[in-house]
Computed example of a mutant assay.
Amino acid sequence: MVTGAGSGIGRASAIALGEAGFAVALMGRREDRLAPVAEVIGERVTVVVADVADERQVARGFERVFERFGRLDLLFNNAGTSSPAVPIDELSLSQWQAVVDTNLTGSFLCAREAFRLMKTQSPMGGRIINNGSISAHVPRLYSVPYTATKHAITGLTKALSLEGRAFDIACGQIDIGNAESEMTERTKLGMLQPNGELATEPVIDVAHIAKAVVYMASLPLDANVQFMTVMATKMPYIGRG
Rank of each mutant, 00 (worst) to 15 (best):
G196T: 04
L219R: 12
E182R: 14
P220H: 05
T200G: 00
G6E: 00
A210W: 05
H208Y: 07
D101W: 02
G177E: 03
V65T: 04
T120Y: 05
I153R: 13
G6L: 00
I209D: 00
G4L: 02
M216C: 08
S82C: 08
I176C: 01
D168L: 12
Y142D: 09
E182K: 14
T149N: 14
S7I: 05
L160F: 12
T105L: 14
V65P: 11
F115H: 08
E113T: 03
R186G: 02
L75H: 05
S92N: 04
Y146F: 13
A170Y: 09
R112L: 09
T149E: 03
A16S: 00
K150C: 02
A210Y: 04
T105Q: 11
L198P: 02
D32G: 08
L104A: 10
Q97Y: 12
I169E: 08
R165K: 15
N103P: 13
I169L: 06
G80D: 01
I41P: 12
V100G: 06
A199Q: 12
F22G: 04
K119S: 05
G164T: 13
Y142K: 08
E31F: 13
S218N: 14
V100F: 13
E63R: 15
W96I: 12
T81P: 07
M228Q: 14
A12M: 01
N78H: 04
T120R: 15
G80Y: 00
Q95F: 06
D73H: 09
L156C: 11
A212K: 03
V203H: 00
V214L: 07
P220A: 01
A136Y: 09
R116H: 10
A114C: 03
A152C: 07
S135F: 10
G61F: 01
K211F: 02
Y237W: 08
N131C: 14
L198Q: 06
V206F: 00
E55C: 06
A170K: 15
S122M: 04
R11G: 00
E31D: 12
D168C: 13
T229W: 02
E67H: 09
L72Q: 04
V100S: 10
S181Q: 02
G132K: 07
E90T: 08
V47D: 03
R116Q: 14
S133C: 05
T147V: 15
V86Q: 04
A217I: 03
A166R: 15
R60H: 11
K119Q: 13
